[in-house]
Design a protein around this nucleic acid. Sequence first.
DNA 1: CTCTGATCATGT
DNA 2: ACATGATCAGAG
Length: 446
Amino acid sequence: MKFKTERELLEYTANIKGKTFKEIDSKNLLDSASLRKQKGLLGHVVETGFYKYPRNSDSKADFEELDIELKVTGYVKNKNGSVRAKERLVLSKINYNEIITETFESSHVLGKCKKMLIIWYEYDSTKEAKDFLITDFQLYDMTDDFEIFNNDFEIIKRKVLDGRAHELSEGDTSYLGACTKARTSSDRTPQPFSEILSKPRAYSLKNAYMTGILRELTEKPTTTITSKQEFKTVIEYVKSKLQPYFGKTQLEILEEITGRQYSEKIPKNISKMISDELIGKDSELAKKNELFAKTSFIIKNLPIKEDGKPRERMSFKTISLSDFETDWEESYWKNYFEETTLIVVCYNEKNRSKNGYRILSDVKQITFDENDLESFEKTYNQIKIAIEKQDINLLPTSANGFKNQLLEIAPKGIKGDDAYVNFFKRNKTKVAFMISKKLLVEKLKI
DNA sequence: CTCTGATCATGT
DNA sequence: ACATGATCAGAG
């Protein structure tokens, strides 16, 4: 899963609150491995199970596009109810040969760990790891405490410059620790200004510091990002997003969310602009809420006449010749109509109101059943025949189609296009599927 | 009014 | 430059 903005990442991450590791462990990493040995295991579970990242990439930032590093770490509850970090947070390894030429600003550790998404779970010695509960998360920025880190960094660097890397200890510094990091306690590594071998170390955020940022987080919880686990269905989720706008016209909504005036020129795609903004673009839905991750959803917008019937057919993506090379059973479009759920945002007309003046009124859901697919298959096969015979007149348009046709082919071009002719030319895709109004009526009354 | 081919506004 | 989602608009 790729995230374009921090906001997207955080909105999606909000859904992890309240989960245990076994609930997100879709790859069953927890089954086999023993937690004691595999320190990064819980992090891997979050990475693969919750964010759906492949389990290989180790060196680059976890959310590469955003330069954000993912950290999963535990805390414990004291008897009096307060919390403290269970462990220091280990960052990147200290390279004794490199640190002597770096400043904190140019350092490898800041480069990699400037921003971290820290996910907190409650460690409980009486539980198995898979039952640990994830309760909080935060986007943390190391430069928030720049002065102190900078100073700590210089202290560590000084020791290496003085040929005393072997004397480094966590007590030297305040926030940024130099903790040991080795396979065995006898592991040693060279340092540049002394013959004495030193323990390998890594930068870390010290335990006390971690407790500090955890308390900051839990004692004044962020109000901007809230979990959306309250929603059980996609419809519920979508409705809640649209809630403040029911009863308003498209224009009112658009002006409200953009803060712009759209006096006389009403964008033809005004409804989609609204749904993109309020609910999310189709391609980004999966990131908004886990609910969307299970099936593919498409947000559709539909004008509804005063008699309750849709004013228009509903269009789909353009179709291309290559879509029709296989039999229906193996085709892209069978799969598409089988798997896709349409979320239909309904705008009611009043006195035949035109686009822009229709009123947000309802959200419905459409899926296609076997009967629908059977009919769609006929359309599909008819297109195959038309392609074989290179005969436009055989295309199952709404005019030329068969009786009770539910899925039809329709033009979709730009000015001057000869849509159906272009469809037969290789790589010219100027037609699209539409489902008939009849089918929409049937689906929407449910 | 409905039907159906044509076209638009936007985003990538 | 083109795909997308959606509406437009002339014919009947």
